[in-house]
């Protein structure tokens, strides 16, 4: 309104170029306004609830154990590399019998240092680490976060999701979902603003009569970076096989489309 008044005030005594520029700006304004109206109408006609869900993955920390063929080929390549390499200065020194003993001593001490160093276990024996809620379980696998959420009357184990609020973009909803359902201690990184998966379902008849047909869920992929989920939230980190057992089969089908298999 204010802007329009200014326009009407200015136009009578302004030059021709001014009027043209003003008319173009007003065109732009009217266009955006109409678009906004159209968008709202779109959603109203459809009568679908829009939801954003986050597939939060903890990527493998350690490498997978090599299958048989890989180990055999690896050994062969190492053997070939060793055969084709020339003798190093150190080995030449060792071959000269002069100070053979000191060199042997050196080698022994290095070996001892290596054997004495204790690497962390690849598979943790700590029971606490292997619990479903722990981030340190199954270090060589991709884990997906599921939380217990109430849908309708019953609870389901699903990737965290929430309904889009007015004026939010889908990715903003996804960010909010992580914050609300996993707490502020966790740091995640999204893989893009565009949804990567889609799933929709219809509400039961009695709910449909009240106005909404069903829910359209847009999935976003994110990776766990650091931090922890507060322990009072019911959650679990599952690998691909466990995911299949714990998810609704239809939902699992649409998730598997974009999750990397093991």
């Amino acid at each position: 309104m204010m802007f329009k008044r200014i326009l009407t005030l200015r136009t009578p005594n302004s030059l021709s170029f001014l009027t043209t520029s003003i008319s173009s700006t007003s065109k732009v304004i009217s266009r955006t306004l109409s678009e906004q109206i159209k968008q709202d109408i779109d959603i109203d006609i459809e009568k679908w609830d829009l939801l954003s869900a986050v597939c939060l993955e903890r990527h493998p920390v350690i490498t997978k154990s090599m299958p048989d063929i890989e180990t055999r080929f690896h050994n062969m390549l190492q053997q070939m590399e060793f055969e084709n390499s020339t003798i190093s200065d150190f080995e030449m020194q060792k071959q000269n019998n002069k100070n053979r003993k000191t060199i042997q001593d050196f080698e022994d001490s290095w070996k001892e240092e290596f054997t004495n160093f204790k690497f962390a276990e690849r598979i943790s024996e700590n029971e606490e680490d292997n619990a479903v809620m722990s981030l340190r379980r199954k270090l060589d696998k991709n884990l997906v976060l599921l939380v217990e959420q109430k849908i309708g009357d019953s609870n389901f184990w699903i990737p965290p999701q929430s309904i889009r609020k007015h004026r939010e973009t889908m990715i903003q909803t996804a960010h909010r979902t992580v914050q609300e359902l996993c707490g502020n201690n966790i740091k995640v990184k999204f893989y893009g603003n565009a949804p990567i998966g889609f799933y929709q379902y219809k509400y039961p008849k009695n709910l449909q009569e009240r106005g909404q047909n069903g829910a359209k869920i847009f999935y976003f992929l994110a990776k766990y970076v650091s931090g922890d989920i507060s322990p009072d939230i019911k959650h679990c980190w599952l690998d691909r096989e466990e995911l299949k057992k714990n998810l609704h089969p239809d939902l699992h089908k649409s998730l598997v489309k974009f999750l990397l298999p093991d």
């Binding site: 678009e35 968008q39 889609f198």
Partner: peptide, 18 residues
């Protein structure tokens, strides 16, 4: 890629702005 295409198509059908 297919999964993302479907998701984007659905989103476009719901709202051009989103």
């Amino acid at each position: 890629i297919k999964s993302q295409e479907i998701a984007l198509k659905e989103l476009k059908a719901v709202s051009k702005q989103l």
